[in-house]
Design a protein around this nucleic acid. Sequence first.
DNA 1: TATGAATGAGTCTTCATTCAT
DNA 2: TATGAATGAAGACTCATTCAT
Lengths: 201, 201, 201, 201
Amino acid sequence: MSRRGQPNVATGERRQVILAAALACFDEIGLAATTMEQIRDRARCSIGSLYHHFGSKEGVASALFIDGISDLNAGLLERLDDCGTAEDGVRTVVLHYGDWVTRQATLARFLLHSREIHFAPEAKAELKAIYQRHFGAVFSWFGRFVVRGEMKQLPPETYIPIISGPIEDYARLWLSGRTSTPLAEVAEVFADAAWNAVRAR
Amino acid sequence: MSRRGQPNVATGERRQVILAAALACFDEIGLAATTMEQIRDRARCSIGSLYHHFGSKEGVASALFIDGISDLNAGLLERLDDCGTAEDGVRTVVLHYGDWVTRQATLARFLLHSREIHFAPEAKAELKAIYQRHFGAVFSWFGRFVVRGEMKQLPPETYIPIISGPIEDYARLWLSGRTSTPLAEVAEVFADAAWNAVRAR
Amino acid sequence: MSRRGQPNVATGERRQVILAAALACFDEIGLAATTMEQIRDRARCSIGSLYHHFGSKEGVASALFIDGISDLNAGLLERLDDCGTAEDGVRTVVLHYGDWVTRQATLARFLLHSREIHFAPEAKAELKAIYQRHFGAVFSWFGRFVVRGEMKQLPPETYIPIISGPIEDYARLWLSGRTSTPLAEVAEVFADAAWNAVRAR
Amino acid sequence: MSRRGQPNVATGERRQVILAAALACFDEIGLAATTMEQIRDRARCSIGSLYHHFGSKEGVASALFIDGISDLNAGLLERLDDCGTAEDGVRTVVLHYGDWVTRQATLARFLLHSREIHFAPEAKAELKAIYQRHFGAVFSWFGRFVVRGEMKQLPPETYIPIISGPIEDYARLWLSGRTSTPLAEVAEVFADAAWNAVRAR
DNA sequence: TATGAATGAGTCTTCATTCAT
DNA sequence: TATGAATGAAGACTCATTCAT
């Protein structure tokens, strides 16, 4: 039984309420500094309920992280489906990231600080699988354009930093409140830069 | 020789010994999970000495962070002094970051996770001053090239993400061990991409 | 039976056990010098239980103080109910104090050193309310005798020191072991002195 | 060499500065909560100096207490010298206490909470000697009036509580700020009460 | 499934005291 | 006499987790 998409509404709702409460706490107080008691207060449930649904504090953080990453990834693949050209694809990667971070600012802030989370082996494995599936699909989508000579041939590990690095960096800036210009307003600049950096000449 | 047979370290040296010990602990165990006891064991000093020099655990982390950022910044300004062209400057920003991260991998890993640190108001103010001074100098260095039309005119907040974002993103990857290709080997790729993204055409 | 074979005490009972243990410790070791560990050892409960019930060391002391004062006050009002004359009332104030201190010597010793306790604002407010209610009742009881001219008209704040001061002073002496003559044996002397000091002539 | 009255002016001054600083700290922060560091800050001297003069924190408190008690006692004996009648003597005991507490309010507050001090055996012995000498002199002064039948014959331990208890009780009240009527204004009332309580009829 | 009182190992931090200079 | 950096034992308190109901 997978964690997501189960029809058990009551349970699923309780789960979501807890995750939302935890996210708010992690964001305001920090992951390490947040206590289960604080999550419980915010979720208006019992300590027992927390442990029933997530097993541990780390379990809450893992679930939040995995749900978040899955949503972010799924959205990209969906939009990539409608793209026809390399430029379209590259710009979509950048713009989708900008859109998603704007819509899910708090969750995005949490995802960007994942290194604080001590994932259990199980969660680690699940994450690895998710990443492999996702980046497999993305690379397979872009591969043909490199083959056709429409995109530069670069060391494989550098494509993602070059395309997503700038907007991700700006997202950190914006999410931490150190800049007031909305992501949406500058996303096109990063899309341009990304395409300029990887297009073949 | 001091009471328990340890060499009587000069004050400044003692400070450095503690910071090095703390960095090693934060890196291996994580900031939140590291205890003052562990730092003390590693620094071979007393708990009292730790508190005498840094006041609190957060004080140790703050000092480490400020020292690190200052070193990184100072190095860049020094190298920028020898640059004559815009391209030279842009490439130097990227390459210096790559060099520094390679040389100071552990410290770099720590700096990249600054959000875990709960800076005291004082430390916050000091950091702000450091950033303002540094970025003031950097922007003033590059400003003339934008004026002369040798670099694109972009929203000011986007230059740093566009130029440094990719190598920073790759640095995260490399520092976390998720790629084995050394930073030095791909740094030129990011330098090219950065210059391509900001040069005027 | 609970986990470690201790009888599963009712919540109220557990509270009382802790308070009794704390009182014994405070008396033997001193408030400041008593550690929570010592209280726990004596109460045969966990540290967590201590904090669950009282929140802090100061919380234990406050509760002990408030419970004690309440018991002392309640006893006086009860006995005052049965008094018909001013002399009866004045003597009862003195004698009840003597009786109570004799019966509750340890608790009395603790109450007489209240200034060591750092009450939280909440506890302070509760205490103030208790005092106001109590002294309001006592003054209202005695008021008619002053009006009728059976007791001297004195500055209001001096009645309590004049009536209770001597026996309280002696109680300090006796409780600290600096005199061996029991309170009960000299209480009548203080009752006489009190009545002599406030009766109208 | 006794602690008081030495002609070494410089040293004596430093001693007084420290004692004054300590008194202020004890009064504001509480004896147990005051740290040597706080005393040092207030006395503007070094930690080493503190230990040189008083040996320990408890040593500071003891010296303060002994100096205070000695001053209070000496003043009474001086004034008693000028008294001719029993009534004069009894009233003087009460009024001198009131005067002294008014003049030395902070010191008085400290003396009234002596139970917090953990005197060293030496200090304990010194104190005991001081008390014996003082109360010996006082009792010897009053003794003749009891013999002559001018004062009531009471259990010896009850004289002091009866005579001094009320004003001491009021002093506690006033020193703690729970009454605004100055001691001086009500001292006569307590003098009257004391004389009424012990005069022979 | 839900509840929340109880647990206790583990932290950070304090602070009286020492002693080489 | 004076200084103050260094020491480390000791304490208050936290909080993830358990489990009987």
